[in-house]
Design a binder for these strands. Structure first.
Length: 501
RNA sequence: GGCCCCGUCGUCUAGCCAGGUCUAGGACACCAGGUUUUCAUCCUGGUAACACGGGUUCGAAUCCCGUCGGGGUCACCA
């Protein structure tokens, strides 16, 4: 950008709308976005929908939605209504190019399709992998225009469309997954034949599962299938039995069935697509930060950064060559750290938005004051936006349905001749007398009792905690009692005493 | 299988291009201890890697070759 002769940078993200946005695609988009934004260039979007059977508008919509959720913005392309060109709308242009190639003797018809002639050795430079040369003998003629379909339309293949579109859109830097590395000689040859300028190519390493396999949406189907087989339970009632049988028989990998099975079995499917991470309660800035780090880093031992920093510092020269494995533990750690640093009102708003979008309903039914109590109590304890509902389950359950963890009861209540129960009996009238109720006031009374009896606070707080939550784990005792309120606190202590005391 | 690419702690990685300052640094995970009324947080410390074998060199994680391992690709999918 300091070179006045350098042309402005134009990058693009060009997904095929055949499914939702995958983390690998998201990372490519992020890199492309950052490269352009950091250099005052343009970042464009384009939909490669030349596969007529698999492309859907629904996928296109979801991809755009997920890109927005991640925080990406793009420049509109003139000539397309929403600024996002679709290759299916540009058939005339591809046909024109094909005619040109045929008349120049560079392509020929065969079996109704049109092939491009290869033969020369091809050398190209990749910003990540360096100079790559492929001998002409390893390069076969390839189809650039498919045979006419049922509707009589001849669609280009990806190879032709990508080359023509990148040229027409003025794309200067092509950042894409390394699965395209061995396609690149074809693209280089086409570009040269057409007299276009070759872009800078930067291929990125792949993102793999912890076991080394490629991260794919099929992993979700696999997980659901094996869980269904192990549990041997009845299938989810809402799924058509025929489809379910086909799914279990590996005849299809339909995501909706996988999700239905997971919901039915209360199982979490592995997150693969951006929407999965969103649903699981990850923050977009954390997802961006983490997946960016899979294959690139700014050096100086810096790991945590925002989009602004990314745009300023991202550079092709620091992209790694080796594949990386997706580590959910690290993602979780980043998410937890970020949640804990969020201003409380922002955390509350995010939690609200997430529960409204994904449930559970119980959390949505709370009034603002209670919702704030839950949010505050769980902010320091949450790894994801989905955690408060899970961790705070004791609060949402009916007093009469609370179950007690046997070990917890034994350890904090029954042990030493029911020492814990005695504390509860002594505490009950003291707590009942508190008016107005507050968790802090209750805590003060408990501290006073602990002192009077020469007990550690743990000997008083833990019995109360177990009595009102059923387990030894909950937020601070004052927060826990604030959440429950006076009536439910007393009711639960009485019930606990009635059951064991 | 052919062709292409890759190979530093369990994982993500710094270092490699411009060989010595690397008894290889950071992060996550893990382990131990501390703070705390539980949990979480937080603090301190620890375990842990240059795939292997040859070269080149006074000296190699860094350069070269081979072996092994991993990935990609070989579609009228992208």
């Amino acid at each position: 950008m300091t070179n006045p002769d350098a042309q402005p940078v134009v990058t693009r993200f060009a997904p095929s709308p055949t499914g939702r946005l995958h983390v690998g695609g998201a990372r490519t988009a992020l890199y492309s976005w950052a490269y352009a934004r950091g250099r005052g260039g343009k970042f464009l979007l384009r939909l490669e929908d030349t596969d007529r059977k698999r492309s859907t508008e629904e996928s296109a919509r979801s991809i755009v939605e997920d890109l927005r959720w991640l925080g990406l913005d793009w420049d509109g392309v003139e000539g397309s209504p929403d600024g996002i060109p679709r290759q299916s709308q540009r058939l005339d242009r591809y046909h024109e190019i094909v005619r040109q190639l045929i008349s120049g003797g560079l392509a020929y018809e065969s079996d109704g399709a049109v092939r491009f002639r290869m033969g020369q050795d091809i050398t190209f430079d990749d910003a990540v992998y360096g100079t790559i040369t492929t001998p002409g003998k390893d390069l076969e003629d390839f189809v650039i225009l498919k045979a006419r379909d049922e509707a009589g339309l001849a669609y280009p293949t990806f190879h032709l469309a990508v080359v023509v579109d990148d040229a027409d859109m003025g794309v200067t830097h092509v950042i894409r997954g390394q699965e395209h590395l061995s396609n690149t000689p074809k693209h280089a040859a086409l570009i040269d034949a057409l007299g276009f300028k070759r872009p800078v190519w930067a291929h990125t390493p792949s993102i793999m599962n912890p076991d080394g396999s490629k991260m794919s949406k099929r992993d979700k189907a696999k997980a659901a299938r094996s869980a269904a087989k192990i549990s041997k339970a009845e299938g989810p009632p809402e799924v058509n039995q025929t489809r379910l049988a086909a799914f279990l028989n590996k005849d299809n990998d339909d995501a909706d069935i996988a999700q239905a099975i997971a919901d039915h079995l209360h199982l979490a499917l592995p997150e693969i697509e951006v929407a999965d991470f969103r649903r699981s309660g990850y923050l977009p800035q954390v997802v961006c930060n983490y997946i960016t780090l899979l294959g690139w880093n700014p050096g100086e031992n810096i790991e945590r950064f925002d989009m602004k920093f990314l745009a300023e510092r991202f550079d092709l020269s620091r992209i790694n060559k080796a594949n990386s494995k997706f580590d959910r533990d690290k993602l979780k750690a980043f998410n937890a750290q970020t949640i804990q640093q969020l201003p409380p009102d922002e955390w509350r708003a995010l939690l609200k938005a997430h529960t409204q979008a994904f449930g559970p309903g119980s959390l949505n039914e709370l009034d603002d004051a209670r919702f704030a109590l839950v949010a505050n109590a769980y902010q320091p304890r949450s790894t994801t936006l989905a955690d408060p509902a899970q961790l705070g389950a004791f609060f949402f359950i009916d007093d009469s349905k609370l179950t007690y963890d046997a070990k917890a009861v034994d350890k904090t209540l029954a042990k030493n001749d029911g020492e814990g129960y005695s504390v509860l009996r002594e505490l009950l009238p003291v707590l009942a007398a508190i008016d107005p109720w507050s968790g802090r006031a209750a805590e003060d009374k408990m501290k006073a009792l602990a002192e009077a009896r020469s007990l550690g606070m743990g000997k008083v707080a833990q019995p109360v905690r177990v009595a009102v939550t059923g387990s030894t784990v909950s937020p601070s005792i004052h927060e826990t009692l604030d959440l429950l309120g006076k009536d439910r606190t007393l009711a639960r202590i009485r019930r606990c005493l009635g059951q064991g005391g």
